[in-house]
Design a protein around this nucleic acid. Structure first.
Lengths: 160, 160
DNA sequence: TTGTTTTTTGCATATTTATACAATATTTCT
DNA sequence: AGAAATATTGTATAAATATGCAAAAAACAA
């Protein structure tokens, strides 16, 4: 999908550059070959939790929510993605299979992301059960996972 | 001044209520007997560093910057205000006299506030030297101190 | 005080952001 | 596959926010 790639790129740009309007972000995206309108951007920024805050020097800047900011380059994340072996969707829930012993890590990382879409997780030894909130689709959860653990779905597809 | 009282009230309301537009905040202020226009509010919110961020449920909410949020009900603050004995302004700088041994605490609290107006502080045993940034007036620093240490000026006035 | 400078404010409006709605595209189900 | 349901997007526009400017208020100096 086009959207997921755009969300990831938005996160990247926002974390690296000083963006002060959506039009500005729009141009940067265009520069990377991603085209959309301001309206879409507004919706995407909301979904990502990106806020607009005073920059302390008389202007404004878009800013990632704290949980993403903290985890953006987290070494923990790097160890989690490879530990995920498979994702199975069933009964509106998501079952994440990991290398034995890694479920707990993975679950607490997902919990820590603070994503609204996820009601909670339960971890065994090599299995995480992810419970989405009411009215959240598995598609939305997939996008959400892609945001907090970039590349996760691609990686699983390659393995399978 | 009217402005200082308004700034403090804005902080209070924003930290306690879920404000999603400036018009909404305007009404709450009016309810407390503070009248101003949306334009003024916009300027005040910028000065306070208050940002507008997605609330995770499809809407938006105004949010204090982290440093204020953290310190808003900090017990440290409560111990600092009474330790401040006098504030002397000289040569564009501010000299804060404290109870002996309390300068270091005070200085690090002020530094930690992350206020743009303040370039830095140096602490002795009972004296803090506060250096404002270029182009920042002492009046602006006074307002700023009132924000991070509410009541400080009143208290000193009563003592004197 | 009175004049001078700086700050604060409102008004009007420009800029920026969000959204209703219709059209597409994607996913899901059979 | 094709139909039905969901999700995504752009257009146009509404809603919300920021700002230039002039007036008023406050702070300052002599």
């Amino acid at each position: 999908m086009q959207k997921t790639k755009r969300l990831l790129e938005i996160e990247k740009i926002v974390s690296e550059a000083n963006i002060s309007t959506q039009e500005e972000l729009l141009k940067k995206l265009k520069g990377k070959g991603i085209n959309c309108t301001q309206a879409t951007l507004s919706r995407n920024l909301r979904q990502l939790g990106v806020g607009r805050i005073p920059n302390g020097a008389g202007g404004y800047k878009y800013s990632l929510p704290e949980n993403i900011r903290n985890s953006a380059s987290s070494p923990v994340k790097l160890s989690i993605v490879p530990a995920i072996l498979d994702i199975i969707e069933a009964k509106g829930l998501m079952v994440i299979k990991t290398i034995p012993g890694n479920a707990s890590n993975t679950a607490s990382y997902i919990d820590g992301s603070g994503r609204y879409e996820i009601a909670g997780t339960i971890a065994g030894d090599d299995t995480v059960l992810l419970i989405p909130r009411d009215r959240i689709t598995l598609q939305q959860v997939r996008t959400c996972l892609e945001i907090i653990l970039p590349g996760i779905h691609d990686q699983i597809r390659k393995r399978g």
